[in-house]
């Protein structure tokens, strides 16, 4: 690991002020420390933001939930308001990582989690456009069983690994970002970027900016929501495919729906196609299957990951059934 200097910030202002050349904020550290050990991340300075008072979960007057960026995954998963009003989020969090890691990982950090692509994580591979822009992509022709079938480009097919973010996409979450130019809010769907020709740019967060909050609006669909994660073993593993769904039902009629996929796409993937296929129709296994087909219509398999298309459909149909509880 490269040497680095380290400072601790007690406030957001201090955190911003302590930034230097090639700095990173460090919160839970579960991604950053991991990648620093691999020499994938090589910051010269770390600003520790664990002491920031962004560690509260509050229900605001309009019924929305405001989650501080420093709220740990375990606290968020076990929060009574989350369990009651946003069950998909609790389920997604508890499906991720392990109890220890959830005690460390933060809400803001999880949004910035980086891909598990083998080739990204191993600097011995020269070709990784995410790590070294313009160097190529070793995964395209490599062992790509865990890679994306949705949202990839010829420059990058790495999946986004978060479970939490997938659930937040299904909940229309809004990310609050503070930077030198002030504060701004970004819809979570727009927060993560497709790789396109610039896979090194993963989110809209600019250098010097700090995630402060995530808000979950009160909605008619958030309580009837579910998360399903499929993987090789029963726990403590990233998704091969996962699905977060939220339904607003009137009897069996679907008034509105939110569907998001994890493990199969280059970003937490919202499927408007599948939502449209469901909206206004009757909740049924048949309708759910049609929605799943719609969700995966644009999927493009690589050599080793074609099975993910079917697996993602299975996850979606199961999640829809669980949410609808027909």
């Amino acid at each position: 690991m490269q040497p680095f200097s380290f400072t601790q910030a007690r406030s957001e202002d201090e955190a911003m002020a302590q930034l230097r050349q090639n700095s990173r904020f460090i919160a839970g550290g579960t991604t950053l420390v991991d990648l620093m050990k691999l020499d994938v991340e090589t910051p010269a300075h770390l600003v520790d933001i664990n002491a920031l008072s962004l560690n509260k979960i509050e229900t605001l007057a309009d019924g929305s939930l405001r989650i501080g960026a420093m709220v740990r995954n375990s606290d968020l998963a076990h929060d009574a308001a989350v369990i009651k009003n946003f069950p998909v989020l609790s389920q997604a969090l508890l499906a991720g990582a392990s109890a220890q890691l959830r005690n460390m990982a933060t809400t803001g950090g999880n949004l910035l989690q980086r891909t598990r692509c083998y080739y990204f994580r191993d600097p011995a591979y020269a070709a990784c456009n995410k790590r070294r822009p313009g160097s190529g992509c070793a995964a395209l022709e490599g062992f790509n069983r865990i890679h994306a079938v949705l949202g990839g480009s010829e420059h990058c097919v790495a999946t986004h690994p978060s479970d939490m973010a997938v659930a937040m996409v299904a909940l229309d979450a809004v990310v609050h970002i503070r930077g030198p130019k002030g504060e701004r809010q970004v819809k979570i769907e727009d927060f993560h970027k497709l790789p396109g020709t610039t896979p090194q740019i993963e989110t809209v967060v600019e250098p010097g900016e700090l995630i402060t909050y995530v808000t979950l609006p009160k909605s008619a669909f958030s309580t009837r929501s579910a998360y399903v994660k499929l993987r090789d073993r029963a726990s403590y593993e990233f998704a091969l495919a996962s699905a977060a769904v939220a339904l607003d039902l009137n009897g069996k009629t679907i008034r509105s729906a939110r569907l998001a996929l994890g493990g199969v796409a280059t970003k937490p993937w919202r499927s408007h196609e599948a939502e449209q296929a469901l909206t206004g129709g009757q909740a049924s296994d048949q309708a759910f299957r049609a929605a799943a087909e719609a969700a995966m219509k644009s999927a493009r398999p690589l050599r080793y990951n074609g099975f993910k298309i079917e697996l993602a459909k299975m996850a979606l149909v199961r999640a829809l059934n669980e949410a609808a509880q027909l």
Partner: peptide, 24 residues
């Protein structure tokens, strides 16, 4: 952070001590 052998309690909660710097 992939095995749990390093689990300790920090301020009463279990964490992976391999994925956190002592200076933190």
């Amino acid at each position: 952070g992939q095995c749990g052998a390093c689990t300790v309690h920090v301020n009463g909660r279990r964490i992976n001590s391999c994925l956190t710097f002592a200076v933190m």
